[in-house]
């Protein structure tokens, strides 16, 4: 109840939005309704395709809950295409004029979000890769930071060397090395990690390689974030813990690191946004994130409009995670 009271306004806003979406979604024309609008010639070609071994008609149906889009196109000498947009019980031809732009927007947004694809596509790839990278990067970074400030000279040198290496070389090259060089040298393929029956193993393999490269790289950057946060903690905290008989591990794990988390959050938030943008480097190993998809659409269709939904998608993602980091920071500064 307390919760409801505290967030009364946003809850009402969200409820209204959800209600509108449900109503609009219920009124959305079905795929069959869109298909029935196709020209007789196109209908005939679709029929013929059923018996052909080399099919000719590409049917693209994309639904964004409240609006949907159907594109029918043929390849070959007589290239024809038809586009339709469905919205609130109506089907609009979208071959020219403003509806064409609407249709393109639906199409681009759908593709960049990675709808109808697995987790290794579009916005889903970007968000998943970024989130996991930050999580693993922070874990690795904490270990490296503790190593770097440790009194053990060997440990400290190893950590410093690691940080120097991964910060001093480009992420793109690290990605190439993880994806191409390492399997080449050791004679394995990333897709072999997944069952041979998995048709999408190649993308999952590439994603695994990307995640490893990104996490190894981010670990080096996070190490510096964690180290500076730890070193900003008052020396008295270490002394108090030591005087109470706590071991180094207990002191770090229970006293110092919990206090440094709050100081890390703004920097981790920055790192998150950096990775969000760096995620576009996965184009180099055949994965498609938001940037890569928008670039592809740009080159294959010559549409400069594609970058507008791309910007919006990125902004929505950063706004959402910015909100989360803000909440986290508040949560961790409760004692101040």
């Amino acid at each position: 109840m307390k919760f409801l009271k505290k967030y009364k306004k946003p809850i009402i806003v969200i409820a209204v939005i959800v209600a509108v979406i449900i109503v609009l979604g219920a009124l959305l024309p079905t795929k069959q309704e869109l298909l029935s609008c196709a020209s007789p010639e196109m209908q005939k070609m679709i029929e013929e395709d059923a018996t052909r071994s080399r099919k000719r008609v590409t049917e693209t149906y994309e639904s964004l809950i409240v609006i949907n889009y159907l594109s029918l196109s043929t390849s070959g000498a007589q290239e024809v295409s038809e586009h339709y947009v469905g919205f609130v019980r109506n089907v609009y031809p979208a071959d020219e004029g403003p509806m064409k732009v609407v249709g393109q927007m639906v199409n681009y947004t759908y593709r960049m979000l990675g709808c109808g694809e697995n987790w290794m596509h579009g916005a889903k790839l970007t968000v998943l890769l970024t989130t996991l990278t930050v999580l693993f990067g922070l874990l690795l970074g904490t270990v490296l930071a503790l190593g770097k400030i440790s009194k053990n000279k060997v440990l400290s040198k190893i950590s410093s060397g690691y940080i120097f290496f991964f910060r001093g070389t480009p992420l793109l090259i690290q990605l190439f090395v993880v994806y191409f060089t390492v399997p080449g040298i050791f004679g394995f393929a990333w897709r072999d990690i997944f069952p041979a029956s998995d048709a999408e193993a190649v993308y999952k393999g590439a994603f695994t390689a990307a995640l490893i490269a990104f996490a190894l790289n981010s670990g080096a950057y996070c190490a510096e974030i964690v180290r500076s946060a730890i070193q900003s903690i008052d020396k008295g905290q270490f002394e108090a813990a030591k005087a109470l008989g706590m071991t180094y591990g207990q002191t770090m794990g229970r006293i110092v690191i919990p206090q440094s988390i709050r100081r890390m959050i703004p920097n981790v938030s920055n790192e998150f946004i950096m990775i969000l943008k760096d995620a576009s480097l996965v184009f180099a190993i055949s994965l498609m994130d938001i940037t890569t998809i928008s670039k592809n659409i740009m080159t294959s269709e010559g549409s400069y409009l594609v970058f507008i939904p791309a910007l919006v998608i990125y902004l929505v993602i950063t706004a959402f995670f910015g909100f989360i980091f803000n909440k986290l920071e508040k949560r961790f500064s409760i004692y101040e």
């Binding site: 008052d234 008295g236 905290q237 002394e239 108090a240 005087a243 109470l244 008989g245 706590m246 229970r254 006293i255 919990p258 206090q259 004692y335 101040e336």
Partner: peptide
């Protein structure tokens, strides 16, 4: 047991947690 000039309490813990911790 040691008591410091600047207290050095653990700021992220409540008073009770500070005393129970060790």
């Amino acid at each position: 047991g040691m008591v410091f000039q600047r207290f050095n309490l653990f700021p992220h813990m409540t008073v009770l947690q500070n005393v129970c911790e060790a």
